[in-house]
């Protein structure tokens, strides 16, 4: 599965994107965040406050409770600030 990170989440994790194998038991976006946080300080820091983390599955906004199912691309980013 492809993971993408944007804005300060990208800066904190130190990754713009990466390919991962989703471990067993990780079924929702929130589960994935929980697992990512175990991967090191930089991920813990990036996801320390999940009220300011937004996610998209295959380029569509989803709540953190969304199931991953057959997702190919998951993106994590802060609330958007365009316009």
């Amino acid at each position: 599965m492809k993971l993408l990170y944007f804005a300060w989440i990208r800066e904190r994790t130190g990754h713009a994107e990466e390919d991962i194998e989703v471990p067993a038991g990780v079924e929702t976006v929130a589960d994935l965040i929980g697992w990512l946080k175990t991967r090191g300080e930089e991920f813990e820091h990036a996801f320390e406050n999940d009220t300011v983390v937004r996610a998209a599955i295959d380029r569509t906004h989803v709540p953190l409770t969304a199931p991953l199912k057959d997702a190919r691309e998951i993106a994590f980013f802060p609330p958007v600030t365009g316009g």
Binding site: F6, A56, F77, P78, P79, V80, T81, G82
Partner: peptide
Amino acid sequence: TNAPFWKKEEGPRGGDWVDA
């Protein structure tokens, strides 16, 4: 509120991501 854009402003104290 929906288009995935993020603004970062460069000021005297460096770069700052704009809060929603």
